[in-house]
């Protein structure tokens, strides 16, 4: 591949798209993790209330 074929532009575009997609997945994963944690805490505090009550 010759350096002046400008193929590296395409590679750069693809790399950006890929990084973007993965960033999206990361954000989604974090959100899901947070909700999971919140639900868990909610459940724990409910159990505590039950035991005390």
């Amino acid at each position: 591949m010759t350096p002046d074929s400008k193929l590296y532009i395409v590679v750069a575009v693809l790399a950006v798209i890929l990084i973007g997609l993965f960033a999206y997945l990361f954000v989604m994963d974090r959100k899901v993790s947070r909700i999971e944690r919140e639900l868990l805490q909610e459940k724990e505090s409910k159990n505590k209330l039950k035991q005390e009550g």
Partner: peptide, 25 residues
């Protein structure tokens, strides 16, 4: 850690980036 199994998720990103970049050259 904020994300469970972060290492293999990062690995997926690195492998695919490698494939997209090096696969063209």
């Amino acid at each position: 850690s904020l994300i469970k199994g972060l290492w293999w998720k990062l690995l997926a990103l690195l492998l695919l980036l490698y494939a997209v970049i090096y696969g063209f050259f």
